[in-house]
Amino acid sequence: MAVPAAVGQHGVVTIPSLSDETLRSMLTAMLSSRVYSQRVFNLQRQGRAGTNAPVDGSEAILAGVEHALDPSEDWVLPQYRELVGLERFGTDVLDRYVLYALGHPEGGHIPEPTRVWPPQISLATQVPHAVGLAWGMKARSEPGCVLVFLGDGSTSEGDFYEACNFAGVLDAPVIVVVVNNGWAISTPIARQTRAKNFAEKSHAFGIPGVTVDGTDAIAVYEAIADARSRAVAGAGPTLVECVTYRLGPHTTADDPTRYVPGDELAAARERDPIVVMTSELERRGLWTAADTETTLAAADARMDAAVRAGEAMAVDQVELFDHVYAEHTPRLADQRARFLADRGGVS
């Protein structure tokens, strides 16, 4: 797939050059996220986890995003494919994502102070949440911004339009990242829109929009850093379209061989973001094959620990009544009591 040139409407991008250390950190994050994703995928195949969505093809986008943001000030609202690639925001992001995949209720609880929300399944509903959060931060004169992910298919939802429109009206410090990986399950982008790209939709909101090569972590970093600098300076929202290609199935429940053209996928694999970044850092003398081996081994070990801890975490069945309200309503308390009584007091 041809990657469109950037169509940003704003001024010149002035991003400080990335340090060698940051570049290495980005590739480390990319390799790790693919390992984490593959391991969670495998857990489903082994009957140990529920349906989940692999990251393959989005690694550069996640690495660019998490390195361009400030985890102490900024928030990330993911869709559902991103939780393996936000470790810079806190180690509990991955640990909770593993719990989420395991079906543990605590999987949705990413604790303070980690500024990441749990996965969102009702697509595009997270965009109004992000705009509200950014609006609230602005109202409270807090620093930082909010970044929200959605996919190419989710741009067809009304919430995307309502939220981007309101974000523009409010000058909300929010970055809307459209991960255009070519597919909404089996529906290609030509069935989602007649627009020539998704950044173009920013014109309707009166906000800047830019399309970047989502297989290039450095390009993503620069686009997000630029959007962030304007958001925190009070210049309002930005729509950033990151173009990549979904290299795996939509989820563990999907068979993409039914609809993805083989030649198109083969061409996309030539632009595998991990291949792109590895060769770039090797060219700069910042990476070796041994670094890859070390990184993969460390990610595996990290995941071993996360899965072990997650599977050891017991679930008390009576927890299904918790957190519906701040305090149980009398009726819920009564149902809970009957639930326990039916089980002889043991849940």
């Binding site: 509903t125 965009v127 109004p128 949440h129 992000a130 705009v131 509200g132 959060l133 950014a134 609006w135 609230g136 931060m137 109202a139 409270r140 807090e142 909010v146 009304g158 919430d159 309502e162 939220a163 429109n165 309101f166 009206v169």
Partner: peptide, 27 residues
Amino acid sequence: DRVVDTPLAEAVIAGTAVGLAAAGMVP
């Protein structure tokens, strides 16, 4: 800043309330 006319869009009225609540406001 505290009394705001919104666009004509009910979903984003309810949806931004979620984010405002998370930011510590009382929508």
